[in-house]
């Protein structure tokens, strides 16, 4: 099944990349842009018999490697199956 994982900086954690890009957008004249955060987008394929099994597997991948729960939040989408 096709899986898309979105990892983003945790709320309240300093996100200097997001802040730098926000400042750049403002200086380009996009005054309405705010709350910019930069994360990571990961795609992968996972074999599995059911969507629930794949979801459980991907959650384990996220907790153990793809995200660091101390500083990052994640969510993912599973397609197919």
């Amino acid at each position: 099944m096709q899986v898309r994982v979105y990892v983003s900086p945790r709320q309240g954690i300093l996100d200097p990349q997001g802040r730098a890009v926000e400042n750049a957008l403002k200086s380009l004249g996009f005054a309405d842009a705010s709350n910019v955060h930069i994360g990571r987008y990961i795609t992968l394929e996972v074999k599995g018999d059911s969507r629930a099994a794949v979801e459980a597997e991907v959650a384990r991948m996220c907790d153990q490697l793809l995200a660091n729960p101390l500083i990052e939040d994640y969510r993912f989408e599973v397609e197919g199956g």
Binding site: L14, P16, A20
Partner: peptide, 8 residues
Amino acid sequence: ALTRNRSL
């Protein structure tokens, strides 16, 4: 954890 320097 260790993250990007404030200054980038």
